[in-house]
Design a protein around this nucleic acid. Structure first.
Lengths: 237, 237
DNA sequence: GCTTGACACGAACAGCGTTCGTAACATCGA
DNA sequence: TCGATGTTACGAACGCTGTTCGTGTCAAGC
């Protein structure tokens, strides 16, 4: 028998599984249901309608089947989320460490992760939930660790720094996704936001005075700013 | 009539509402249903069973009523989440800025937020979703802004720094909540994690070599490390 | 006493994740 | 060639969710 979804998941986390054998796949469909096909269908839904709209039933419908059929390939919905993150991480390629260019290399990886996540609005939710033993995310960690170490960062600072950076990328992209979601009632233009801050009561003196700075930042200026902040700190340790 | 939940929410965001008048509350219950009572009941559930277990039906049951009754006081579940975050933010007191002690003051506020969030596992999910115009979270922003400005940080750096810090606090607490959730299948001791990292294939050389550093950090050492990193960076601009 | 209007809530709807039992097929041994 | 075997696919159902609608029930105003 081919591995059960449970075994698949366990091996993705390098955990021994109370296992069984394996055998070739069989079936009677024109296009058999596979994990890869499920991931493809799911990513399509997330790209079009956001992570909130991702349901087992919709994935099944996209595959022209019923929801029950998915559970032969996927443990549950959380598992599917993890698989999606895994796929996204696999598509990120990591540069060979160049000691002199460690900052640019790290920024590059983070930026690629950011853009990858933003293509699938809200998927960072799954990234935040993904366990630290997932092999695909560990691959990114390995790559970033190699870059930082090559750049001369001390191992402990590098380890914790990577953690902070990946956490920040996930949180930032999740926030951006929520704030630009057209289904969100509170999405608001910069001008509107600025006028609301200026209209605050006098118990918010600093916020009113610096509303311009608080609402500043086009594109991903805020993102770059924070990355620089953290990398500056790492470089100095 | 007392304000509809919609009007309440709008005013919390300083948005004009297409309003109506107001009138004293009436009812025929021993203990009338109020927004405050709903928040209390909801926080009790989250504290005990986590944010995932927060259900309109459970909140209603705690108030000895049916779910429909809540919708006279709360717009929907997202609104309830925002109210919870608002309550938590209200309970955080902000120090009078002391220019010489700005670092300690900022760290103090972030730490209090962290501990507050951690008391209600998973609630940071709602914090990440909360709109940037919510008055209660703006209050924290105002307080931190005042501290940073008093400490001599440039307004733009202060504004973006606050953003990063609050985002990090939410993300960090969310991660910690998920990783220590006893219902989580992947929660694992430090020793177990370390042995899994060491058992990785040879395509993970750095991860295997520095498994100790990657799994290091008791209590909130990682949290303090990142805060220091960001504050160092802010101080230098 | 009667009307008015705000509050509370029972019942229901559509949709969700997940499980169970069964039907349909490919392969293998005889 | 013909079952027997084991695997895949899936219809139907369960229990739960957020939310809405219509009705009941009380306090206040005339």
């Amino acid at each position: 028998m081919s591995p059960t979804p449970q075994q698949r998941r366990a091996s993705r986390h390098h955990q021994p599984d109370p296992g069984a054998g394996a055998a070739p796949a069989r079936g009677r469909r024109a296009q058999p249901i596979t994990v890869a096909a499920i991931i493809d269908a799911a990513l399509g839904i997330v790209a079009r309608d956001g992570y909130e709209a991702l349901t087992m039933r919709r994935v099944a419908a996209a595959l022209e089947t019923g929801p029950a059929s998915l559970y032969a390939h996927v443990v549950n919905k959380d598992d599917l989320g993890e698989l999606l993150i895994g796929r996204l991480c696999t598509e990120i390629d990591l540069p060979e460490p160049e000691p002199a260019a460690w900052r640019e290399q790290i920024t590059g990886v983070c930026t690629r992760m950011r853009d990858q996540y933003l293509r699938y609005p809200g998927i960072s939710r799954a990234a935040l939930a993904a366990a630290p033993t997932n092999e695909d995310t560990l691959r990114i960690g390995e790559g970033m660790l190699a870059i930082l170490l090559a750049g001369g960062i001390a191992p402990q600072a590098a380890a914790w720094g990577i953690d902070s950076l990946m956490l920040y990328v996930s949180a930032y992209t999740l926030e951006v996704s929520l704030l630009t979601d057209p289904g969100n009632e509170w999405v608001v233009s910069r001008d509107e936001l600025l006028s609301r801050l200026s209209g605050l009561p006098d118990t918010f003196p600093q916020t009113k005075r610096h509303a311009a700075e608080l609402t500043a930042g086009t594109d991903h200026e805020r993102f770059d700013f924070t990355l620089d902040l953290v990398l500056d700190g790492l470089a100095r340790r």
